[in-house]
Structures are given as structure tokens and as C-alpha cells.
Design a protein around this nucleic acid. Sequence first.
RNA 1: GCGAAAUUGGUGAAGUGGUUAACACGCCGGAUUGUGGCUCCGGUAUGCAUGGGUUCGAUUCCCAUAUUUCGCCCCA
Length: 438
Amino acid sequence: MITKPKGCYDIYGKEGKYFQKINEVVDMLALVYHYQYIRTPIFESSELFHRGMGETSDVVKKEMYDFKDKGDRNLTLRPEGTAGVVRAYIENKMYGDAVQPVKFYYNGTMYRYERPQLGRDRELTQFGLEILGTNDPISDAEIISFGYQVYQILGLKNVKVQLNSLGDKESRLKYREELIHYLKPHIGQFCEDCQERLKENPLRILDCKVDKDNPILKQVPKTLDYLNEESKKHFESVKEYLDLLSIPYEVDPTIVRGLDYYSHTVFEFTCEIDGKSLAIGGGGRYNGLVELLGGPSTPCIGFASGVDRVALAMQQEGISLEDDRIDAFLLYVNDEEKKYAVYLAQELRLAGFRVETEYLGRSLKAQFKQADRFRASFLIILNSEELDNNEVKVKNNHTKEEEMVSINMLIYYLDEQLSLLQEECGCDCCHDKGEENE
RNA sequence: GCGAAAUUGGUGAAGUGGUUAACACGCCGGAUUGUGGCUCCGGUAUGCAUGGGUUCGAUUCCCAUAUUUCGCCCCA
């Protein structure tokens, strides 16, 4: 048997529906927040990601999906969306466009060469936003607002916004030095990994799982204390706008994103699931990246969220999706009826009804079962003799009542009956049956 | 990149070095020759991830590979 590659997933069925729902909400919000859709290549020159994300990190060294094509070009499956968008911005000289800032949203698959484990696949789906060309704190607030609203509209209850500021480059470097200086005398008390981290990645010590309760960390210098005046002002302003927009947030000094390109505002969205808080999205300001990749100095902010994880969170919170019952199932037995079923199915579908029919030539009994599986509101039972009289038998699958309906009137009849059903039956009795236990 | 465990039909799974691989759900058919969701009856694995080996004989033992799960590194 040919199996899917390691760390990849087939998304379909119920999970597929969650994906569709998320996409729908993102598309809708993108429209009203006025973000244009961008679709960049799934692979890019390796250099783009390697330069953008900092050559030294483990991420680049061992966790990129690098490959060579037949022309011996070094390519990499995109590990995230921002670098591609920034490349497109520079390559298409969008910094010269009349409309500024440039606001994009995307939705697509990303790839990471990692050892898979729960919630960490090699292929994952993310949607994301970028605003390129403004440093105004209202853009920080807008990005966070967009993300927050996606989760709200999807119905997630336990989403938290955690906010921090790394300050500008100058503040960050100063902070890093201070942190190393502070931790160095005590580093013997930390786990081996942290002792390694001190040199390469001291900020990561702050959210080490092993040492999180070490009292030394309670007194640790905070990024916020090392912000220069301008950075501080920016951060204060972002918070004010978030208040204005009634977006709840917590300032959390341990939010330090992994990539080098972040500066100033950084944030994460987490969702409480089974007592664990799971990051479902995150982002921040990356004022230096456009320049690093060869464009003019351009302030930007972005956000990305893992669709897989959002879907998981929705599932865990028991958010139910729109009813997927069909309106009518066409039952038939002989060939004449079958032909009519095929014809009628198209007519009804084009009139906007959700219609199914029998494909496997099963017994009438089996067709009834099938119709129930589809949770059909109406059963249309075709009978040659009745067809000759231009009539079909329509059975209301809720009341079990049957009625002969003239074919001319069928569309009108179904329309009326369905709205009646909806009025009477906005109840639980026919919704979510058999949808539980998952 | 490192470490550990798992892999039996459409699904959940039990089980054994030796004739027919339990049970349940599902599915198909019948009882009910065009009205189902209940009941009863019957059917339902080219055979136990793949490739080697040990053996008179392996799904059961050994090795390798693949995938999955968990932990580490790292986290976009």
C-alpha cells in the first residue's frame, strides 16, 4: 500500500468541514478589513528563508524542507508565509504603489522538516495577514483585532491574547546582554539545555519547561524594562488602541518569538484545552525584514495562525458546525424511474436544493437507510405509474407523512415545506443527531 | 538529529509457533416480491504493515524498512 509521507495528513470529513468554516470566516473578515488575497509559491529559493530567519538557528540548520531541483537550484518548501509575501512585495516593487500600506492575507500549506508529534506535522495549514508600509500602532492593533475576531466568530471561548514588546534592535541587543549577564552566575542551577541556550538563545530560557519554577527566573530582567523611549511609546499606544477596540489582552514578558526578525510588538493567541494552553496563532512586528531581504526600509506587522490547531480547538470546545443534512433523496427502482431521478436531481439542484440519489442500484429498503444517513428532510419516491400522471410521492422524513405532489409544483412545494420545517424545527430534535461522541 | 512503544478486515479490537484468526459495530442480502431506522436469519480478511531470516512449519521469534504515537532538541 502506498501511504502518505511522514507527518502529512488527509483532511476530510468532519475535519474538512472545520477547515472550510475557518476559511470562510477568514475570507469574510479579509473582505471587510480590506485585505487583498495573495498566493505566493509553495517553494522559494532556499536563500530567502535562510536569510530571513537567521542562518544560525536550528530552524534553518535542520528543520527546513530543503531540496534541489533538476536544474540544481536550492529550493525550500515554505516554512511560513511572511518571507514569501515580503519577497513578493519587494520583487513587485509594491513599496511604490499608490495605495499604502499594503495589506495582504493568505491561506495555505507550510512545511517543516521535523519529527512529527501531536500538533506538529510536516505539512500544516496556516492563514496569515501582513501589513507592509506603516509603523503606526493602529496597524498593530488592527492585526491583533483581526485575529481575535476570527476566533470569536468561530466561537472559541477560551482564547487569550498575550502581548509583549521586544523593542527596537537597539533595545533588544541591550536586553539580551543584560539577560546573559544576569543569568550567568546562576546558570549552574539550570538544566543542561538551558546551559546550552545561554550562549545561543538566552531568551528561550525564559520559557523552559524544566526550569520554569526556578526562583532565579522570578527576578529576571524584563524586556519591557529595556525599551527605549520610542519603543515604550509605541507599546503604550498599541495597548491604548486595543483597549479602544475592547480586545482583552495580558502583557506577558515571556512571549519571545523565536525568529530574529521580530521587533517591537509580539503577541500570541492561546486557547485553553484540557487545562493545557495551546498556541493557536501568533505574530509581531518585523520592521527590519524588508530591508534584510533587499528592499527599502519598510515597517511591517504580521500574524499567522495554524488552521489545524484552530480546528482542533473548535472540536475540543464542542463547536458544532452548520447542519449538513440534505433536502431531498430520490428513491427509484426500475430504469425508467432511474432516468427520471437523474433528470429531477439536476432540476432540483439547479433550483438550489441539496439533493442526493441512489448510485449503487440497491434495494428500496437500502435506499431508505441511505436517505437516513444523509439525514434527508424529504424522500421523493419515484414510481413509474405515478410519473405517468406527472406526480411524485413526497415523504416528509420528520412527520413521516406522505403526499402526492404534481411535478410542476414540486419545487414550490419543497421550498414551502422546507421553510415550514425550519420554523417548527429549529430545535435539537433533527440537528446533531449522531454527531456526538467524537 | 537522538530515545521509546506500536502496526491484525470498512471500523474498534481479542488471540495463537501447527487443521476453519474470537467478539462487536458497520456494510450487503433475506424474512417484508416498492416504504427504512426495531427484531430475527444469512453473508462479509487475495489473511495478521512491507522485505528478509530462524524453523518441518510463523500472524506469532529475530533483523531491516515504512508509518503512527510519546519524549528530547527546536519551534516559524
